[in-house]
């Protein structure tokens, strides 16, 4: 029973969500809208569970004085401060502390992480340049052509390179993207089918 009921729920929910695509009737739309709401509500309970796991893992680290346990204290402090800042008597989402933590800690770290991409992409490009295989060379050449398209110092070479880059982006690129997209589409449908029909159930747990 412990296995059959979940599989039955998967089947019912899956078949309904797939079929509602073909049923414009308001009954179907009604259930569809509520199903989406349920997913959102389940999400917040799952988040509570996840935050609990976070607290437990950090707390255990601190308790057994594991390597680098002081950092777990910092994380927990950050978490509790933020939750406290967002409580109703602090003003909820409009709380001063909550918004300032967001602007002065989260935003700068976030944009710096994003900016780090530039360095990482440089080292990735270096890695690509050392590539020895033929396929990697093809990748590299295409990358070079597209990068040079933006280069104003190419003189008379600029025009043909820009045209080649545009051609690559408009034809081979589009062709490959379409082929990949179709493959992904079929892969998604096949995976979803296997899940709904219970052929793939590794995620469902045992006992």
């Amino acid at each position: 029973m412990r296995k059959e009921i979940p599989q039955f729920i998967v089947l019912i929910a899956g078949v309904f969500m797939a079929m509602q695509f073909f049923v414009p009737h308001s009954y179907s739309q009604f259930l569809y809208r509520y199903a989406l709401d349920w997913l959102i509500i389940i999400g917040i309970f799952a988040l509570a569970l996840a935050v609990w796991s976070f607290i437990r893992v950090s707390y255990e680290k601190i308790q057994r004085k594991a390597d680098n346990w002081p950092y777990a204290v910092v994380s927990l402090a950050g978490l509790f401060t933020m939750v406290f800042a967002g409580l109703w008597f602090m003003g909820g989402l409009e709380s001063y502390l909550y918004r300032h933590f967001f602007s002065f800690i989260m935003i700068p770290i976030q944009s710096t992480m994003y900016a780090l991409l530039a360095f990482f992409i440089a080292s990735a490009a270096y890695r690509a340049f050392r590539a020895r295989s033929l396929l990697a060379t093809v990748l590299l050449l295409a990358a070079l052509v597209v990068m040079l398209r933006f280069n104003p110092f190419l003189g008379p070479l600029g025009e043909p390179i820009a045209r080649l880059a545009d051609w690559i982006l408009n034809y081979p690129n589009l062709a490959a993207k379409r082929a990949i997209a179709m493959g992904i589409g079929l892969g998604i449908v096949a995976t979803a089918l296997k899940v709904i029909l219970g052929i793939e159930r590794g995620y469902m747990g045992k006992d």
Binding site: G43, A46, L47, L49, A50, V51, G202, Y203, M204, G205
Partner: peptide
Amino acid sequence: PIVMTIAQETVKT
């Protein structure tokens, strides 16, 4: 969070 729960279940299994 939901992926975490599913993954825990998966690895345990």
